[in-house]
Amino acid sequence: MSGVTLLAIACSAAVLLLIGRRDPKRLRAAGRCDLAPYSAAQRRGLAAAALLPGLLLALAGQSAGVVIWLGASVALGWLLTQMLAAGVAGRGKVRR
């Protein structure tokens, strides 16, 4: 169970990182001109992809896995937001 759950968490975290890196509001606020923001349709598609591992766990009847995946995803989402703001992830040119 743990291995599958960890894989699901890793997949969702990777997609969250993709969304976060090119989040239009974040890029605008940070004055980033080197990255093109995702369109609304792209963000919706990626959001669905981030939710997919949890859905698969639920379909497999892994109730504990679903709850762990959800908890870990929100905690990692917060961590990624902090890292992106600190410039640890997704470095690039900043417009002043």
């Binding site: 509001k25 992106l84 600190a86």
Partner: peptide
Amino acid sequence: ELFTLRRRRDRLLTARDAHVVAGTWNLPF
């Protein structure tokens, strides 16, 4: 604003973003 954490000179606005972003992610739990 899920990913918007502005690091500015204005500490109150930075603190507001830090509170809101953490609160938003943590809301369901």
